[in-house]
Design a protein around this nucleic acid. Structure first.
Lengths: 144, 144
DNA sequence: TTTATTTAAGATAAGTTTGTCTGAAATAGA
DNA sequence: TCTATTTCAGACAAACTTATCTTAAATAAA
């Protein structure tokens, strides 16, 4: 469904958010250890998310990553997915046609339409904050 | 969502089915030309689908691929997906955890649960015949 | 100013998926 | 039997994704 890069991006952000809620910045090694993502690869992905200004990064001692409270409450998971995987999940045809719409559909278009819409709605209405608080309270996990 | 291999597999089967409805066997070059799939790669995928006995293949002159009427009416799209992509779409965790269930969920588990179930149900209830007849009648297309 | 610490950026490597090519095996028909 | 036609099988190649490594740049604190 998501690429590995996207999975890591979401997990990394959720861990960073749990720490930002406590006012703590975290460095990449902490993110990797606590999200179960490979360190170097995750660093690269966090670079993208920094450029998309979803997280903030600070160099040097006491530096690291953090995400503002306002940001984690307003940023939807769909924005992370879009920043990393682009719009393929939303606009791509199930059978890979260059164009595929109700006027000239692939054989699965109609069948997929509803499911994709729900997926999109779900990602568009779920905030980082919502998932991070669930994670922080121990109701979900990043590592297993 | 699906791998390229899976997209090609579904498109190839649907084209073969439209021809089998007319009692015509088709060879790989015809499948490639009429489904918009690369010939050699599709040949390999059709090999898998032949082994899964979803299609029948015949060597030699007047040979090619065909799918029995009974088979196309009873075979679900989920079986094609399973034969090519395995069960990752059904069982994989959205965030890539090795195990992820209601007891010990990833942060997105609950959000994904319903959508994945609907996707599964859709693929489990859609037959090759249903999509092939729609395609044959011109209501959908494989190439664009 | 120097040092230690941290992210940034880009080169490189490894792995997987996608795609092609070649020769073998089967088979229908002359 | 011979030939043309077709799938089958596996080697090979290209492209993309995933992952690592190395060096540079920034910065806090002594």
């Amino acid at each position: 469904m998501f690429s590995k890069a996207c999975e890591y991006g979401i997990k990394a952000i959720l861990y960073i958010a749990t720490q930002s809620i406590d006012g703590k910045r975290v460095k990449i090694s902490d993110v990797a250890n606590n999200s179960g993502c490979p360190e170097a690869f995750t660093a690269k992905i966090l670079g993208k998310l920094t450029k998309s200004s979803i997280v903030n990064s600070y160099k040097g001692p006491y530096g690291g990553f953090e995400i503002e409270m306002r940001k984690m409450k307003t940023t939807k998971i769909s924005e992370i997915v879009y920043a990393i995987d682009g719009d393929s999940l939303y606009n791509g045809c199930a059978l890979g046609l260059n164009e595929c719409d109700a006027n000239d559909p692939c054989p699965m278009h109609e069948k997929f339409y509803g499911i994709r819409k729900e997926l999109k709605t779900m990602l568009d209405t779920t905030t980082i904050y919502e998932l991070a608080t669930k994670l922080k309270s121990g109701k979900s996990t990043l590592i297993r």
